[in-house]
């Protein structure tokens, strides 16, 4: 068993040593033929990819890693598979096409081995080994592909979070955050961070949170609003919530959410008028426990 495996490994390595160019050509052709719709990676890029991967594969096979860990354990080979998958992920190629691309290498490799030997046993052993090798490569490519897509999604949602929570200065010592969309935990954390830093920077006495653009207020959203208001008050500033539309006010009442400790106004204009009055009154008379 061991000897057959070692022989088969050497057989494949031999094919790579002598026919690397042909294998690479064939692999590129197979990929182009299968992704007829055009998958965003050009022929020359495919060829470059193939050369890099086949070179690393040969080095991997000549090394002493066991077959099942050649792809995952060999640094350069792992990198080559990663590059291949990430490039496809970024170009919007589907994961199926991506793993098929890796699988097509099986065919290209086996054809080369066939040209070298006609012995049935040897071909069978080489085929088993090729399958084992490239199945791990397929799994690895799928994993990297998913990583790549997730990274893009994460980056985009972070960017979205940043641009969707601007803090604007409306008046001397009065800031406002117009919220658009829903208020989940991650969003609340970003809002609090941006708002509190701006409060410190501008020595703002009043922060207005405008929820005109928030479609619904449920218990969770209300809790997140309360949390933000509490943080603002702990800093020593006051908080006004504006833009509570009638249907939302009704929902809040029906849910029995208690916002009575929070200053609320129907419109941003009303809130600004209130805020200016507050800043004109005695300074720094705010705090969680202050009754007014």
């Amino acid at each position: 068993m061991r000897t057959t495996e070692a022989a088969a490994r050497e057989r494949i390595a031999g094919a790579l040593r002598t026919e690397a160019d042909d294998i690479a050509d064939r692999w590129v052709q197979l990929q182009l033929a299968r992704a007829a719709s055009g998958d965003g990676v050009g022929e020359s890029a495919l060829r470059e990819e193939a050369d890099a991967l086949l070179g690393a594969l040969l080095a991997g096979l000549e090394g002493d890693l066991p077959v099942d860990r050649v792809f995952t354990g060999h640094q350069a080979l792992r990198q080559a598979v990663s590059d291949l998958s990430l490039r496809r992920a970024r170009n919007g190629v589907t994961p199926t096409v991506t793993s098929l691309a890796v699988m097509a290498l099986k065919e290209a490799l086996m054809e080369a081995v066939q040209r070298q030997t006609r012995d049935g046993d040897e071909l069978f052993a080489a085929s088993v080994l090729t399958n084992r090798l490239l199945d791990t490569a397929g799994a690895l490519s799928f994993e990297t592909y998913v990583d790549g897509r997730e990274e893009i999604i994460r980056r985009q949602s972070r960017q979205l979070l940043e641009v969707s929570t601007p803090v604007v200065r409306l008046w001397r010592q009065v800031l406002a955050v117009p919220l658009i969309g829903t208020l989940d935990t991650a969003r609340t954390q970003v809002v609090m961070e941006n708002l509190l830093e701006a409060i410190q920077e501008h020595e703002a006495l009043v922060a207005i949170i405008d929820i005109t653009g928030v479609p619904t207020v449920d218990t969770a959203v209300a809790q997140h609003l309360m949390q933000t208001v509490n943080a603002v008050r702990l800093m020593g500033s006051d908080c006004v919530i504006s833009g509570i539309r009638p249907p939302i006010a009704q929902t809040i009442a029906q849910l029995g959410i208690d916002l009575s400790t929070i200053l609320t106004r129907a419109t941003l204009a009303d809130a600004l008028a209130t805020a200016i009055r507050l800043t004109d009154a005695a300074p720094a008379l705010t705090g969680p426990g202050t009754e007014r």
Binding site: Q200, G287, T290
Partner: peptide, 16 residues
């Protein structure tokens, strides 16, 4: 503190 749920009830605060 806000996430902890502690509001420092009764304590007056100032920015600086």
């Amino acid at each position: 503190l806000a996430e902890l749920g502690l509001q420092l009830t009764g304590v007056e605060t100032a920015l600086n």
